[in-house]
Design a binder for these strands. Structure first.
Length: 492
RNA sequence: GGCGCUAUCGUCUAGGGGUUAGGACGUGAGAUUCUCAAUCUCAAAACCCGGGUUCGAUUCCCGGUAGCGCUACCA
């Protein structure tokens, strides 16, 4: 049944195989993305496989949270499997290796020698004493007697054999078989280990390219041994440089907390396409000067040759959990998003602040803040005055322009009050009227507009004045200018 | 400890035997604008160290150092 066509010549089948032991973290997300891009670029198949053989640590909540993360990324997959449902296949693989004499039973109690650091230093870690050499008869007898055992791979020893494979990123890799320990295939409870289950499934699912984190680079020799024992041609391998924290340590849930969870990015208001764009730039380059890229452009440009070999730092700090480049890219993607598409994405963040803007109003406000926010969650603080019934009390110092006085601010506001009731409330008419008012008062635009802007928006920094007033409407504007004026009454 | 992988501005990266070592983010200065944002201009900022090979190495080779990974009946 094994297919004799080399994996490199078949239609690519790649897989993403997370183990559900927590939320989806950014490193896993990147691995998924690279696999997806490879699959789509080559018109291959994307397989999602939950590697849930670690019964102790797997949770259903984690499964849900991983799906949630993947769904948010907006990338799909073609086939889906659960490793725990494929136990029979794994056992069969173990059987087959045992039958061929490529594996043996190890009756050493689990965790017998926990000081494997020192025993490793003495070179005594290759196999447990007496187990590898045990006769089949004795092994069978002890097993039949119900004594628990782990199944280990019988790694070729004393032949000076060199194992090798060509990595799609790191190039040709070599290792002496004698340096590899007799790794476990089955635990003493009969459950397969990661190495066995993973290889058996990769073979069974006819995976052609394994694209995964570099932390598996050395493990790959073991996997080659398993594929060989199973009598199948190993897939192509490509290992990805790791994502690390600014201190150089591998990104981990434990040490770095929620900053490594993709939901943190989602909740802060990253656009998924920006997040994907950012992750792609860590450890991969299109080799030209492009940085801002759409999914289509990424798919088109992605190749394994573009993958870098050095670990990439995600540049976050305690004060700011997001890499500045990620934030910048997000701002770029926000600006590139059409208003009709962006407005509904903003809605949840207004709701979070306790406001439920009408869709039309949101649509009117969005273009005014689109250039001014870096994260979607900034939307409310950038646009609050559009939705507040009552502005917080004015700061007279803000109503009064620099090098000026309250009297001038009062004149400007009074004049505005005279002019505004009859002006059509659209951008051009407002501009014409207010500029005219400014020159009548002998003021420069900047000087004249500040009191009005502060009156209408409640602060000095805001979107362009005329468009803002047009959205706010005549009634609100007049009301606020009156209030501002009266707050200046007693002020000299 | 053993084995492996890696090393270009603060960060992400391009490059590659002879280059003013390129771009981006961030930072600083300026321009522009009704403020902010955006935009534009300019600036500071890097080839880990030591040996080779070579007319010439940041680039190729070796060694060192450092970081990371693997060395589990975790994945």
């Amino acid at each position: 049944m094994p297919d004799s066509t080399p994996s490199s010549a078949r239609t690519p089948r790649v897989r993403f195989a997370p183990s559900p032991t927590g939320y989806l973290h950014v490193g896993s997300a990147r691995t998924f993305i690279f696999n997806w891009l490879f699959a789509r670029h080559t018109h291959g198949t994307m397989v999602l496989r939950l590697d849930d053989t670690d019964v102790e640590r797997n949770t259903e909540a984690s499964v849900q949270s991983i799906f949630e993360g993947l769904r948010w990324l907006g990338l799909d997959w073609d086939e889906e499997y659960k490793q725990s449902e494929r136990l029979a296949l794994h056992r069969q693989a173990a059987e087959s290796l045992f039958a061929k004499g490529l594996a043996y039973r190890d009756f050493t109690p689990a965790h017998a020698g926990d000081d494997n650091q020192s025993s490793a230093a003495q070179g005594a870690w290759l196999s447990n004493p007496g187990m590898r050499e045990m006769s089949r008869a004795e092994s069978d007898r002890r097993a039949a007697a119900g004594e628990p055992f782990a199944l280990r791979y019988r790694v070729p020893r004393g032949e000076g054999r060199t194992l090798q494979f060509v990595d799609g990123v790191y190039g040709a890799q070599f290792k002496l078989a004698d340096e590899i320990e007799d790794f476990a295939l089955l635990r003493s409870d009969g459950m397969p280990t990661y190495h066995l289950a993973s290889c058996a499934d990769d073979a069974g699912l006819r995976i052609t390219h394994i694209i995964r984190g570099q932390d598996h680079l050395t493990n790959t020799f073991k996997h080659c041994l398993i594929f060989e024992g199973l009598g199948v041609e190993p897939p192509q391998f490509a290992h990805l440089p790791l994502l690390v924290a600014p201190d150089g340590a591998k990104l981990s849930k434990r040490r770095h907390g929620p900053v490594v969870s993709v939901t943190t990015y989602r909740d802060a208001g990253f656009l998924s396409q920006a997040f994907v764009n950012f992750l792609c730039l860590l450890g991969w380059s299109p080799k030209d000067d492009r940085e801002f890229m759409t999914l289509d452009e990424l798919t088109d440009a992605f190749t394994l040759e573009g993958v870098n070999r050095a670990n990439a730092v995600v540049n976050f700090t305690e004060e700011d959990p997001f890499d500045p480049k990620a934030v910048w890219l997000n701002a770029e993607h926000i600006r590139a998003t059409p208003v009709e598409e962006l407005a509904p994405r903003l809605a949840p963040f207004f709701e979070q602040a306790g406001f439920h803007p009408a869709p039309e109003k949101l649509l009117a406000v969005t273009p005014l803040i689109r250039e001014r926010i870096k994260l979607l969650r900034d939307a409310f603080s950038a646009a609050d005055f559009f939705f507040l019934d009552q502005l917080p009390p004015y700061d007279p110092a803000e109503l009064i322009p620099q090098k000026s006085d309250a009297a001038l601010a009062r004149r400007v506001l009074s004049r505005a009050l005279e002019v505004l009731p009859t002006v059509p409330f659209n951008h051009d008419a407002l501009e014409q009227a207010l500029r005219a008012a400014a020159s009548e008062l002998g003021l420069k635009a900047g000087q004249a507009f500040q009191p009005i802007r502060v009156a209408v928006c409640g602060r000095k920094n805001a979107p362009p004045l005329f468009a803002t007033m047009a959205v706010l409407g005549r009634v609100t504007c007049l009301e606020r200018i009156e209030q501002a004026l009266s707050s200046l009454e007693s002020f000299s």
